[in-house]
Design a binder for these strands. Structure first.
Length: 651
DNA sequence: GTAGGGTTAG
């Protein structure tokens, strides 16, 4: 925003001026100076080139000091309040501090009204130490003051202090009000502190604030961040007069907790209830449609946003880039990405990770270079995309270089996701010991994703010892997940260690662990068709199996040799279907081939990780049929594993 | 006389 061009500070009598004029004066006096750095008033971090060094600030502030010294004697508190407000609006802590010091000289430093404004000023500027220090010295603390400080901590952290202050309020005989709750609940959201959050909810009910939309939205957000969407829904249902933000909060609660279908359905209800979707509504539900890989729903939302004046909204457009990229339409995503008015880090990340997800390693890395060249801010998610691209593309040297680059140049501490990419990359390239050493060096606790990446690599390279170690860790982290046992069993089978296969099978029976049912689905002409492994319930089942058999013959001619390593997993299903491998993704592909025009791209979604043999088979099918086939895992959505997917019933 | 809530990448 360009700064106003008033050059000289005016010297006038202020006592008869309105607050608005006082505010304008301080604006023009302090902030109009062309030498004052613009970044001082923005949310951006200080310029590393040091544009606002002490010399420049010294040049800027004297006019304000003169103003303070010459004009303020006898001014009413409301006048000072408006000056502090100017500092708050511009997040200008230095003039604010000067004003604070002046008020102390005038004996107004602990005036509750003005001091509360000053505490707010320090909070808004992120200087919680100053805010708290002043708070401690104010003799008469009212509820308003407590709320201001709690809000400061809820915005800036440490969040625990916001909760501690909330508890201290009671000791001082104060009762929280409808303003207190959203602040303290925000701190609970940040900490995922569900127990504290529930206690606060009890207090909300006790103080009859449950139907307030602001409190309600904060409660919904708290339950959403604590992975309790059902509790969020109960709050939502109790509020009769709902505004758009309340609806948006509930939509986000569903989207964030892996219920994109519920989010889309609720959005329809919102429109039927007569509410106009806002930017946040669209961003949330477009994100939901990306998670569900429901391209028709996503396209519909794209159309809706165009018709309702969001065509030039960059946040909505970024959500669309993400949706198209995740759905495999990377070209459409790129076109939209290029049309963005301002490319923010989120937009770059959506495009880079979209490329990485679908194996376009060169495009992802090329875009990353463009991002760096344009001087865009880079964050840890950018590197999840970059390292993911290297991992998918088998680019070992580049992956190692970027990992090093991220730590040394960008000072980004690697997260568990970065390590997962690196273990996957090293492991796939056969450097299993290096992958294991990297896990041992990790500063963060390795999760099931990291050990799973190592286990998968062990399967590819037949490394029994490390696979046993990885499964041992995975059994601790996810004791009921059948997939880990199955993979180890297959590794034993590959190595001819049949006693190991038998031992694992017994272990699974003893523990009562059943393997998850793999489900894949494909959308053809606006209808979703879902398939289970070995499924024969589809009306076109006979034609699907005939197509699979035909493909099997063509693939054999093209040199495809089915892998025999998956004995534990596959033989039972395949015996039922005359030895045609009928994994769910292959059924979905066969159905897609007989139901769509030649040349149509096929997008299959799968709820479990695709096996290596199907990976190879799909490459053959793609080559033979000249079709682009994309498989997307959505295995993070647990509800797909609960048997909800049956043919055609999903919608 | 001062204050409040939601959304965007793997």
């Amino acid at each position: 925003m360009p700064l106003p061009s008033v050059a000289k500070p005016r010297r006038i009598s202020l006592l008869s001026e309105s607050q608005h004029t006082a505010s304008s004066l301080i604006d023009s006096t302090i902030f109009a100076s062309s030498s004052f750095p613009q970044t001082q008033f923005s949310n951006h971090p200080p310029n590393p080139q040091g544009h606002h060094n002490s010399k420049r600030q010294a040049l800027t502030f004297p006019p304000f000091k003169r103003l303070v010294g010459q004009c303020f004697h006898g001014a009413p508190a409301s006048y000072y309040a408006s000056l502090i407000q100017s500092c708050i609006t511009r997040k200008a802590i230095k003039p604010g501090k000067q004003l604070h010091s002046h008020l102390c000289q005038m004996g107004l430093g602990f005036n509750t009204f003005l001091a509360t404004k000053l505490v707010n000023m320090y909070c808004v500027c992120g200087s919680l130490w100053n805010a708290h220090h002043l708070f401690d010295r104010i003799p008469k603390r009212n509820l308003f003051l407590w709320n201001v400080l709690i809000r400061g901590y809820a915005w800036n952290g440490p969040y625990e202090v916001a909760i501690a202050l909330y508890n201290q309020m009671f000791d001082c005989g104060l009762v929280p009000d409808r303003y207190t709750f959203p602040f303290v609940l925000k701190a609970c959201s940040a900490l995922s502190a569900i127990e504290v959050g529930r206690k606060i909810h009890e207090r909300v009910v006790y103080t009859m604030c449950e139907t307030d939309v602001y409190v309600g939205a904060a409660l919904i957000d708290m339950y959403a961040k604590c992975c309790c969407p059902q509790s969020a829904r109960r709050v939502f249902d109790k509020i009769e007069e709902r505004d758009a933000v309340l609806w948006n909060s509930m939509l986000a609660a569903y989207t964030q907790n892996g219920h994109p279908d519920e989010s889309l359905a609720l959005c329809s209800e919102m429109v039927l209830a007569g509410l106009r979707p806002t930017e946040a509504t669209l961003v949330t539900v477009i994100s939901a449609s990306a998670d569900i890989v429901a391209l028709p729903a996503g396209k519909e939302l794209h159309g809706f946003s165009l018709r309702n004046g969001f065509e030039s909204n960059d946040k909505v457009k970024t959500a669309l880039v993400d949706m198209y990229a995740k759905s495999g339409s990377v070209k459409v995503a790129r076109t939209l990405f290029e049309r963005l008015g301002e490319k923010r880090v989120v937009s770059w990340n959506a495009m880079i990770t979209g490329y990485a997800m679908h194996g376009y390693a060169a495009e992802a890395l090329d875009l990353f270079e463009k991002m760096k060249g344009g001087g865009a801010v880079t964050d840890h998610i950018t590197f999840v995309g970059v390292l993911g691209a290297c991992s998918r593309g088998g680019l070992l040297d580049k992956g190692l270089m970027f990992f090093d680059f991220m730590v040394r140049e960008y000072h980004i501490e690697p997260t568990v996701q970065h390590y997962t990419c690196m273990v996957d990359l090293l492991g796939h390239c056969g450097q299993l010991n290096k992958a294991y050493n990297l896990i041992k060096e990790m500063k963060v606790m390795p999760d099931s994703g990291v050990w799973g990446a190592l286990l998968n690599s062990c399967k590819i390279h037949g490394h029994v010892e490390l696979a046993e170690l990885a499964v041992e860790k995975l059994m601790e982290l996810e004791p009921d997940e059948a997939g880990h046992y199955v993979i180890l069993s297959n590794i034993y089978a590959q190595a001819g260690m049949w006693e190991g296969v038998a031992r694992l099978r017994k272990l699974m029976i003893d523990k009562g662990i059943k393997k998850s049912i793999a489900c894949s689905w494909i959308e053809v002409r606006n209808k979703v068709h879902a398939f289970l492994s070995g499924d024969t319930s589809h009306p076109n089942s006979a034609a699907i199996y005939a197509e699979l058999k035909r493909l099997g013959g063509l693939m054999a001619e093209a040199g495809y040799v089915p892998s025999t390593d998956s004995v534990f997993h596959d033989v039972e299903d395949d015996e039922k279907t005359n030895m045609v491998c009928s994994h769910s993704e292959r059924l979905a592909i066969a159905f897609g081939l007989i139901s769509t025009e030649p040349g149509t791209r096929l997008l299959i979604t799968k709820n479990l990780r695709i096996c290596e043999d199907c990976h190879i088979a799909i490459k053959f099918i793609s080559k033979i049929t000249e079709r682009e086939i994309t498989i997307r895992d959505v295995n993070r959505y647990h509800h797909f594993k609960d048997g909800l997917c049956s043919c055609g019933d999903y919608w």
